[in-house]
C-alpha cells in the first residue's frame, strides 16, 4: 500500500514538472485553475462533507488569503504607487515576506478568523453557520471596499508578483489532499463524522463537539486562505468584487458532484466542474441557433450549474464517490 502511495506521489510530481515546462500556456492555466479550485474544494469538503456543518465560507477566507499574500509579497514601492484613494498604512508598507511565508500567513489569518467565528456559531445548534458564513463573505467585501488604506478599496491590488506556477499550485493540492486524508483517518476525523451522523450521540461519547467542529472549520479556513494567496499571485491582480458568492457556489458544485465527505471525489469533481465551466463557456456568449442570434447571456452557465446542483441533490445526493475514498474501494475490492 505504501509503495503504491509513493508511486502515485512521484507520478504526480513528475507530471507537474513536465506540464509546467512543456504544455502550452492555455492548458497550464486550466490546470492551475483546477489545482486552485481543487485545494479550495478539498478544504471546503472537510467542514461540509466530513463534519456535516453546512457552511458558505470559502469566498470570505479566499479573499482574506488573497489580500494577505498580495500585501506581503508586493514591494513597498509598488504599494506607494498603487494606493490611489489613500496612502497605505505604515504597517502595510512595512510588511514584506517571500512567497511561502506569505502563503502560510494567509492560512493562519484565515484560520484565526475562523476560530473567532466558531465561538458564536458552534455554541448554538442549527444552521446558523451557513447564514453567518454567507454574511461573513459580504462583510469581508465591505471592509475591503472601505478600509482603503489597507486594501486600496474598490481599486484593488495590481502587479502582484507572479511567484505561483503549476509547481506551487500542484504541490499544494497534493499537500492539502494528504493533510485532509490524515485528518479523516484519525480520531479527529472519526469524531467529525460522528458529529455529522448524530451530534447528540457524539456528545454522549464524551466528544466535545464544539472543538471538533472548530478544528474542521479552522483547517478548512487555513487551506482556503492559502488557496487565496495562490490565486492572488497567479492572477497578479485582485479586487473586492472578485470574491463573491459565485466562488463558493462553484466549490459547492464540485463537492456535491464528487461526493460530500469524499476527498478523492472532490478531485474528480474539480476536474469535471472546472473543465465543464470552460466547455460551457459558449453558453454565455453569442450563439447562432438556426440562424437566430441569441445574443450574449452572461450567467447562463450559472443557471445550468444551479439546475445541476438541484438535480444532484434530488436524485443523486451521494455524488460520484458518496463519502468514501478511493482507498476504501480498494479495501472493499480485496475482500
Amino acid at each position: 500500500m505504501k509503495i503504491i502511495k509513493l508511486l502515485m506521489l512521484s507520478v504526480a510530481i513528475l507530471f507537474l514538472i513536465f506540464a509546467q515546462n512543456n504544455l502550452d500556456p492555455y492548458t497550464v492555466s486550466i490546470l492551475n485553475n483546477i489545482a486552485i479550485f481543487g485545494i479550495l474544494a478539498l478544504s471546503y469538503n472537510l467542514i461540509n462533507g466530513v463534519a456535516g456543518q453546512f457552511s458558505l465560507e470559502p469566498n470570505g477566507f479566499v479573499a482574506i488569503g488573497a489580500y494577505v499574500t498580495a500585501l506581503l509579497i508586493l514591494p513597498a514601492s509598488s504599494k506607494i504607487d498603487m494606493f490611489a484613494l489613500e496612502d497605505p498604512a505604515p504597517i502595510i508598507l512595512a510588511m514584506h515576506t517571500s512567497f511561502l511565508p506569505a502563503l502560510l500567513m494567509s492560512g493562519i489569518v484565515a484560520a484565526v478568523l475562523a476560530f473567532i467565528l466558531s465561538i458564536p456559531v458552534f455554541r448554538v445548534r442549527g444552521d446558523y453557520l451557513a447564514i453567518v458564513t454567507l454574511g461573513f463573505g459580504f462583510i469581508i467585501r465591505i471592509f475591503a471596499m472601505n478600509q482603503t488604506k489597507y486594501t486600496n478599496g474598490a481599486m484593488g491590488l495590481n502587479d502582484i508578483p507572479d511567484n505561483a506556477n503549476l509547481l506551487w499550485t500542484g504541490g499544494i493540492i497534493i499537500v492539502t489532499f494528504i493533510v485532509m486524508l490524515n485528518v479523516i483517518y484519525s480520531k479527529y476525523g472519526r469524531a467529525m463524522k460522528a458529529v455529522r451522523d448524530d451530534e447528540d450521540a457524539a456528545t454522549a461519547m464524551g466528544i466535545n463537539t464544539f472543538w471538533i467542529k472548530t478544528y474542521a472549520f479552522m483547517t478548512s479556513a487555513f487551506f482556503e486562505g492559502v488557496g487565496g494567496g495562490l490565486m492572488a499571485s497567479l492572477l497578479t491582480t485582485i479586487s473586492p468584487d472578485q470574491f463573491t458568492f459565485l466562488l463558493t457556489f462553484q466549490l459547492l458544485i464540485i463537492i456535491v458532484l464528487g461526493g460530500l465527505g469524499s476527498m478523492s471525489g472532490t478531485l474528480i469533481g474539480a476536474v469535471l466542474v472546472m473543465g465543464g465551466t470552460e466547455w460551457l463557456r459558449f453558453l454565455d456568449q453569442n450563439m447562432d441557433i438556426f440562424g437566430y442570434n441569441t445574443g450574449a447571456h452572461p450567467g447562463l452557465r450559472m443557471v445550468v450549474f444551479s439546475i445541476l446542483l438541484i438535480i444532484m441533490m434530488l436524485f443523486a445526493r451521494r455524488g460520484i464517490f458518496g463519502n468514501k475514498e478511493l482507498t476504501d474501494m480498494f479495501k472493499r475490492g480485496k475482500k
Partner: peptide, 22 residues
C-alpha cells in the same frame, strides 16, 4: 439511547473507536 443511535455512516469498529476517543 431508547431508539438506538449509532453513527450510521461508520463501521462497527469505527463506532466503538469513537468511544475510545479520549
Amino acid at each position: 439511547f431508547q431508539n438506538i443511535r449509532l453513527f450510521k455512516s461508520m463501521s462497527v469498529l469505527e463506532n466503538v473507536l469513537i468511544g475510545f476517543h479520549h
